[in-house]
Design a protein around this nucleic acid. Structure first.
Lengths: 154, 154
DNA sequence: GCTGAAACAAGTAGTGT
DNA sequence: ACACTACTTGTTTCAGC
């Protein structure tokens, strides 16, 4: 598998990333190639796993989530890691979970309705998980930007 | 603006979130409502800003980004914040940037080709920004999960 | 606020170069 | 690897309930 894409691939990815519902026929027209070529390329990009899915980006605040916080989680012992991740997965407010280097074993992203809801998720749910030693929270005041990686690496 | 959606709205959001290119006519069929109702609802959800966009989720590793790190940024003085954010925005490897509570002023997400590229972004770019006092990096070894918030809050 | 129908546009699959 | 054609399916709009 090579990780370089030709001009057509790049343009398809760029155009679909700005609007995943854009008609393939319109992309074809813009790139001055046939309709079916776009279908073939998208199919290939999907089959090779470059395109994972076409997702809908919703406004979390309009859904009622007014608080967002990054949470660093320490473990009592490293061997608890797998089980802790499985428990975190069951907490719907935890949307992201990574093993990381540094002073935390796990780094998670948590969305909550308000500060009280966040407190509840942290202390009634995360702290109750067997093996969790402690947490540090970084509450987001403002999200300045949130975007995707460039398709082509500079 | 109310933040509660009826069954149709919820189902549309759920179905489009699992596949943003799903045909509206198919959603209509599944929900046993008319084709045009789905269009009307999606239009309204988009106009009110609940739906921000239909995006394409790509596999970062297949694009060549093998390193992902959360970076906590300290500032020399709080007044540098706005300017630092604008400089970070120019660094394409920085995909997310938030003002946060706690020991860091800014919390960012950085994607890089490899560890050497990450080092370069951190020390040749972020540390060179005027006002940045220091950084702590949490390098992701594994992303266990990364998902969206539930449409309906439990 | 929702449906239905009709005109139009896009997606799909097969064929050929 | 790409284009062309014919066919199927989805989208859009608007009159009417």
């Amino acid at each position: 598998m090579k990780n370089q894409f030709d001009y057509i691939d790049q343009q398809i990815l760029l155009k679909l990333r700005s609007d995943a519902r854009k008609a393939y026929s319109q992309i074809a027209e813009e790139l001055k190639v046939s309709n079916s070529l776009i279908h073939q390329r998208v199919k290939k990009l999907t089959e090779t796993g470059v395109i994972k899915k076409a997702d809908l980006i919703l406004d979390e605040k309009k859904l009622g989530y007014n608080t967002k916080a990054y949470v660093g989680i320490r473990l009592k012992e490293a061997r608890f890691a797998t089980k802790v991740v499985e428990k975190l997965r069951e907490i719907k407010e935890v949307t992201e979970c990574n093993y990381v280097s540094g002073k935390y074993a796990i780094f998670a992203l948590v969305y909550a309705k308000d500060n009280d809801h966040l407190r509840s998720v942290l202390y009634d749910q995360i702290h109750e998980v067997d093996g969790v030693g402690g947490t540090d929270s970084f509450i987001c005041f403002t999200t300045n930007f949130d975007r995707s990686v460039p398709v082509v690496i500079s």
